[in-house]
Amino acid sequence: WFKNWEKTGLLQFEDKNGDGRIQYVADEQKNEMVKVDRDIMVLANPEIAKLPDWVIALVAAGGLAAALSTAAGLLLAIASSISHDLLKGVFAPNISEKNELLASRITMSGAVIVAGYLGLHPPDFAAGTVAIAFGLAASSLFPALMMGIFSRRMNKAGAIAGMLAGLGVTLLYVFQHKGIMFIPGTSFLGGMEENWFFGISPNAFGAVGAVVNFAVAALVVRVTAAPPAHIQELVDHIRVPSANRKMALEAQG
Rank of each mutant, 00 (worst) to 15 (best):
Q29L: 13
F142H: 07
A61Y: 08
A61W: 10
F13S: 11
A111F: 07
T129P: 00
S139E: 01
L75Y: 14
A65Q: 13
G63Y: 12
N94E: 15
A115Y: 04
L141P: 00
L141R: 03
R38P: 05
T107Q: 00
I40H: 07
K50N: 13
I78G: 00
N17M: 07
M108G: 07
E97N: 09
V112K: 09
F125I: 06
L86I: 14
L101Q: 12
T107I: 03
V55M: 13
L76N: 09
D27I: 15
Q12C: 00
E32P: 04
T8R: 09
Q23E: 13
S109R: 01
L11H: 02
L10D: 06
Q23C: 07
D19H: 03
F125G: 03
A115L: 05
S81N: 00
N99A: 03
A49I: 08
E47C: 00
P122Y: 02
F91C: 08
W5R: 00
I95R: 07
W5H: 02
K98Y: 15
L75C: 11
E28W: 08
P123C: 03
M33G: 04
D39E: 14
V59G: 00
G73F: 08
M33I: 15
V130R: 01
G62F: 11
S109F: 11
Q23R: 10
A133V: 01
L86S: 06
I132F: 04
V130W: 05
S104Y: 03
I56E: 08
P143T: 06
H121L: 07
D53F: 11
A127G: 07
F91I: 15
L120K: 14
G135S: 05
M33Q: 11
L141A: 06
R105G: 09
D15G: 08
K98F: 15
N17E: 07
D39P: 01
S104D: 02
N31I: 10
V90K: 10
I40E: 10
A60D: 15
V114R: 10
S80L: 11
E47N: 10
L11G: 02
A127Q: 15
D39C: 06
A71S: 15
A61I: 09
N99I: 07
V36R: 09
W5T: 02
F142K: 06
V42I: 12
I78E: 09
G9P: 04
E97P: 01
L64A: 09
A67T: 12
A133N: 03
L10I: 09
E97Y: 07
I48R: 06
Y24M: 12
S69N: 13
N99L: 06
G116S: 08
A131T: 02
A44T: 13
G73R: 14
A61Q: 14
Y117P: 03
F125W: 12
P52K: 06
F134T: 02
R38H: 14
V34G: 02
